[in-house]
């Protein structure tokens, strides 16, 4: 076991864990969207899980730092909050939403993050960024909502883990990046019927299974 100090409190964890995982397992919350416990190489794309670690001159992402004996971690310093709030504002500048109409039961991960960081769901002082994409995209078994998607990549990862040939992919590049599906495949040949892993793991309700599929999946587990 390894002991480290987080916010002046000593916690214990196993070797090989990331600082983020160790904290979460010890009841210390650090905002995160793209973290998956079982993933070997962290995606490290959402940039929310910043912490300060003694010995580093600026905040680092806690998902990419492995625990070490005696590590001193702080999760709530002003530089950490500054970066987390900016990352959150940036995400919200591409994600127009209101808590009232959130399609995710109990509100999505973003609402919880906003509460934790004590910021609104608006991107102020940033402007909302227009994008040239459809509001809804048909991905055979799912409806994909680009404006809800924060590109955490969890769906792409779980799809690859569950199915030998991953059916979901990142497509395009940069600001235009979306989650895509491509291929002239007979829907009945797809494993999606019984899988639904991508929709389940999505933190923002950006992938919604079509109702007829959900019915089938439920009746045919």
């Amino acid at each position: 076991m390894i002991k480290l100090i987080v916010d002046e409190k000593e916690i214990e964890t196993e070797e090989g864990r990331s600082v983020l995982q160790a904290c979460l397992e010890n009841g210390i919350f650090i905002p995160n969207l793209c973290f998956i416990k079982t993933r070997q190489q962290p995606h490290a794309s959402c940039r929310l899980c910043f912490v300060e670690i003694e010995g580093f001159d600026r905040p680092v992402t806690s998902c990419t730092e492995k625990v070490r004996e005696g590590l001193v971690v702080r999760t709530d310093t002003p530089p950490v909050r500054r970066l987390q709030r900016m990352a959150f504002k940036l995400l919200m500048s591409g994600h127009p939403c209101e808590a009232k109409v959130c399609p995710v039961k109990g509100g999505c991960q973003l609402i919880r993050t906003a509460k934790y960081l004590k910021v609104g769901l608006n991107p102020k002082p940033l402007e909302f960024l227009e994008r040239e994409v459809e509001e809804e995209v048909d991905l055979t078994f799912f409806t994909y909502y680009p404006f809800r998607c924060v590109l955490c990549g969890k769906c792409v990862y779980v799809c690859r883990e569950k199915n030998e040939h991953n059916l979901l992919t990142f497509a395009q590049r940069g600001f235009d990046t979306v989650i895509g599906f491509f291929g002239d495949i007979d829907p009945t040949d797809l494993p999606c019927h019984t899988c639904l892993a991508c929709a389940t793991i999505c933190p923002t309700g950006a992938l919604i299974p079509k109702p007829e599929l959900t019915r089938e999946a439920k009746s045919n587990p």
Binding site: H165, L167, T169, F170, G180, F181, F182, G183, D184, I185
Partner: peptide
């Protein structure tokens, strides 16, 4: 590999 992968 999947066509999605190529497209991506």
């Amino acid at each position: 590999i999947s066509p999605s992968e190529v497209y991506g």
